[in-house]
């Protein structure tokens, strides 16, 4: 998606603000969460921002003790994003999976409305076993929102077989000071069983948050790992 501007506000800033709002909600701060409160229906950049955040736009609704139920406005925001940015026939695995993640999250975390949600598009997992670990790690970090509980169980199962490789990717990402990649991988590792204790995942998540927390998306991943999987401190 090309960088668009709305007045003087670029898409990246809209996404950053929304990520901040989601992370606040996951920490139980900032009042009851409403997606349409942080990304307004009708704002030109809202569909793109929702598409980029993917399932994370709905992450606060996945909490057991959430402050608010999603309403029609929130649902409308999601429907608009799904309609605006469907993955094309030549979509990358990442694009297909992030779209699928938003659809799955809508099914799981939003009330069933009058209209049915679109069926989740097919997204393959063959690449998980075949991709060398550095590239696999980068790709999986881009799917961090799918680490929300219950989403993409088939993908999670495949990734569990690559836990050591993803852990190596986490090490590599931290060494490269690629905090967003490290946070995304750390979040997936928080969901996967049998992460090697010598990785130091809990302290690693805390470290990445301290070092890379200037990026709200980094903070969002770390907060989500803690909120949903109890990892990090």
């Amino acid at each position: 998606m090309a960088e668009q501007t709305q007045g003087a506000v670029p898409l990246s800033a809209v996404i950053a603000d929304a990520a901040t709002g989601v992370a606040l909600a996951l920490r139980g701060e900032g009042g009851p969460y409403a997606l349409s409160g942080i990304l307004r229906h009708g704002d030109a950049l809202t569909p793109a921002a929702v598409r980029v955040l993917g399932a994370d736009a709905l992450a606060p609704y996945a909490m057991e003790h959430r402050g608010a139920q999603a309403g029609p406005e929130d649902e409308a925001v999601v429907r608009q994003a799904l309609a605006a940015y469907p993955p094309g026939a030549d979509a990358t695995e990442v694009s297909a999976w992030t779209y699928r993640g938003l659809v799955e999250a809508s099914h799981a975390f939003l009330p069933a409305g009058a209209q049915p949600w679109p069926a989740p598009p097919e997204a393959g997992t063959g690449w998980v076993a075949q991709t060398p670990w550095p590239r696999l790690s980068h790709r999986v970090s881009q799917l961090a929102a799918l680490a929300l509980p219950g989403l993409a169980p088939g993908l999670a199962e495949q990734l569990a077989a690559r836990t050591d490789d993803l852990s190596r990717g986490f090490v590599r990402a931290v060494r490269r000071r690629d905090w967003l990649q490290a946070a995304g991988l750390g979040r997936w590792l928080a969901r996967l069983p049998d992460v090697a204790p010598t990785l130091g995942l809990d302290s690693g998540l805390a470290f990445v948050r301290q070092m890379g927390g200037a990026d709200p998306r980094v903070t969002l991943h770390i907060v989500a790992a803690q909120r949903f999987h109890g990892r990090g401190w």
Binding site: W133, P134, D164, S167, R168, G169, V171, R172, R175, R176, A196, T198
Partner: peptide
């Protein structure tokens, strides 16, 4: 041995 086997690939790559 386990530690080295697990982490050497990431250090090598780096």
């Amino acid at each position: 041995t386990g530690y080295l086997r697990l982490w050497l690939p990431s250090w090598l790559d780096t």
